[in-house]
Simulated scan of single mutants.
Amino acid sequence: MVFASYEEAHAKVRELCVEHLGEHIGAQVAALAKPAFGLRPVKPGIEPAGLGRWGGPALLNPGTPWPDYDGVPLSLFAVLDVDALGPWLADERPPVGDQLLNIFYCDPDPGRGYELGNAPIPDYEGPRYCRIIPADPARAIEMDAPAPATIRDPEPFYAVPVITIPSAQGVTYDPILDTLDYGGETDGSPYYESLPGWLIGDKLGDAWRDFCHQVQGLYTYEDVHFSPDQAFGWPHMENTFPLKEMSEDEPYRHIITIGHYDMGDGGYLHFVLPAKALRDGDYTQTVAFLEGF
């Protein structure tokens, strides 16, 4: 289903939340909704989202150094063409001028000379282990990854406008849900003091998953494959990550989730940063959380 406008999509989400959570809590959850884009491989008859793609060379402004982690060049995972996504994002957009976002992660290739014995002890959840580097499409040039960074063939994607709310999977949920006023709904529950947000997953979880799959085509591809690839909005999370400190003043921001590559035993990466850092265009505070399955 393609919504005529974000307002129409939000009205549907509010109706669903109030139906399953009641007016008091449901309206609060619906107020947290954010626009996003599901990312899908381009197929015949569908135009790619501008220069957006997984893999390929980076698109960087001249003179931009290739990012590294303690001397190990990072691998280019994706390029996100923000302007090509259209007006759906509204106020959720990055700062003006940050049209192209190059998404990097530390994933060196032994086939290109990487030796584990020489590697530093990794800080997987540190901001240096990943990087988001903006570029101007009018100036950007293609840059190939230096060895031993992994090189992947470019795969264009198209973007599907969707609406998202914070993840709630039973007792595993986005910590931003702890900030809601539950109005005594969970009084007497053993979860209340430590996990008040469990109520959202318990009462809304199945209905929200059906809405995502059946109405939005979100988190599925061709009705068969689970596809977490998504730009902006709230990320779909099955596990709990340490996001509370990133949201001390206001909720964190999500740039992209990438599940297009084999990350060992499977899994996907969420790239997130503090809200103020995104407003300021300070991508050095971005961290990438690897979620396995």
Rank of each mutant, 00 (worst) to 15 (best):
P95I: 10
P235C: 07
G188F: 10
L290E: 11
S75A: 11
L21G: 00
P122I: 13
H10P: 05
C130R: 00
D174C: 14
D91C: 15
N118M: 12
L39F: 09
E248C: 05
W54H: 10
H20Y: 14
A145W: 03
F289H: 07
Y173Q: 03
I132T: 00
L76K: 02
G55V: 07
T172R: 13
A119Q: 12
D181P: 05
Q285C: 06
I258H: 01
A30L: 06
L51Y: 15
Y182P: 03
Y261K: 04
N61T: 12
C106R: 07
D123A: 08
G264P: 05
T186A: 12
W234K: 01
G50H: 03
A159G: 05
E155S: 14
A275P: 00
H24P: 10
G259T: 02
L218G: 03
P44E: 14
G111N: 15
L269G: 00
D206Y: 10
G55E: 08
D123C: 09
V18E: 04
G113H: 10
P108H: 05
Y221L: 11
G259L: 04
L273M: 15
L195A: 11
F37L: 02
F293W: 15
P156K: 06
P251Y: 07
I255A: 06
P94K: 09
L269E: 04
F77M: 15
E185T: 11
P65D: 08
N102G: 06
A149E: 08
R112E: 05
V272P: 00
E291W: 09
A288C: 06
P251I: 04
I46P: 00
I256N: 02
D123N: 10
K244P: 04
S5D: 06
A231W: 00
S189Y: 04
D210H: 13
P48G: 08
Y182S: 08
K43N: 11
V287I: 09
A9L: 03
I176L: 06
V287N: 00
V13Y: 01
I46G: 00
G170V: 09
L278D: 00
Y105M: 04
R131F: 04
Y69H: 03
W88K: 01
V224E: 11
L278G: 01
Y268G: 05
A145E: 07
R131Q: 15
G45E: 12
D81Y: 02
G201Q: 01
P274D: 07
L32D: 02
L116P: 05
F77A: 13
P166F: 04
F104V: 03
K244Y: 12
G184W: 07
I176S: 02
C17G: 03
P41D: 12
G267K: 04
Y191A: 08
L85F: 09
L39M: 15
F271I: 00
P65H: 07
Y192Q: 12
L51N: 13
L199W: 02
M263R: 08
A90R: 15
